[in-house]
Design a protein around this nucleic acid. Structure first.
Lengths: 166, 166
DNA sequence: TTGAATCGGTACTGAAGTGGTACTATTATA
DNA sequence: TATAATAGTACCACTTCAGTACCGATTCAA
């Protein structure tokens, strides 16, 4: 399925909260608080934050007043980084994607695959798209929709919505 | 996972072959021939072609000399059409995607979701990307890589590869 | 020093989706 | 009438996902 897993959803939600806290100059926040804030299953969220920590996207401090906080400026972390940390490298197709795993699990010989070129291009454009959106954009879009200025743009054309994020 | 299923891979491969045959003015081709050509599991490919037929992307003719052929001009069929036919509608996230199913399966209240705006934008851009690539592009890219003119562009930057497809 | 709160690691389980197969019915041609 | 093809349905093995559980390590505060 061409979709993110729920764990990635939770990661983006948690990172958005960490970004807001960073902007306010607040310290680390525990997984429990984040889970309660957004009604997420706490053990699962702890696993997600753990993986984000291993990917150096967040830093963790143990102990009674410990928790998680963003490791970098939100503008320096892309959505692709988050997805890669949680789900592993993005691979649009099993084969023909220009990655080291190329050909694995695909019955079509790479040399004779008639869809190879286009799939590779699609993959690159998808990766480019995910790289171009940062946590900073995530926070900005969130505020925009909260203030009613956007309301998720039901009337915007795709081209307009693309240009807004660029 | 942010990837296409193998069935979609097979669909793209089969559609590329049907597109080539259409360009040559040839008639319908059976699932067996396509499966043998690219070493695909025949029963599964038949299921895939069946689904493409239900989505009116290919037309099928039964009988001894029957088979499948493209229902429309390759330029009029987008990769998004193919993905939707095989995998159902693209939903980047469980929630916050602006679709009728919004909110289903997501624990975060839509109104309080801090990632809502950005996820919706990403979803729209992803859909736009998939809509912008047609079967015609698929065929063109395939020829390009076969003649060695592209070789899947290992040296191209992402921006360059995007501009090539536009 | 003790306890509470937190993260870190591993392992496990039920559910769902994916990949693939099998069988029968239907249609069309020779 | 035999053959070759699609159409439909059902089924199963396997993998991944979503979520839970447990235990240990760390830090802080009383």
């Amino acid at each position: 399925m061409l979709s993110l897993t729920r764990k990635t959803d939770y990661a983006l939600v948690a990172l958005a909260m960490l970004g807001q806290r960073r902007a306010l100059g607040l310290g680390p926040v525990s997984a429990r608080v984040v889970a309660e804030q957004y009604n997420l299953p706490q053990p699962l969220l702890m696993n997600v934050l753990k993986e984000l920590g291993q990917a150096r996207i967040v830093t963790s401090t143990r102990g009674a007043t410990g928790g998680y906080e963003l490791a970098h400026d939100p503008a320096q972390v892309s959505v692709l980084d988050v997805i890669t940390a949680i789900e592993g490298p993005v691979r649009l197709a099993q084969c023909c994607d220009g990655l080291p795993v190329m050909g694995q699990g695909c019955a079509v010989e790479a040399a004779s695959c008639p869809a190879k070129g286009a799939v590779k291009h699609l993959h690159r454009r998808l990766v480019g798209l995910l790289e171009s959106v940062s946590l900073q954009d995530l926070l900005a879009e969130s505020e925009e929709s909260e203030t009613g200025g956007c309301q998720c743009c039901p009337a915007l054309t795709i081209a307009e919505s693309i240009s807004r994020l660029k």
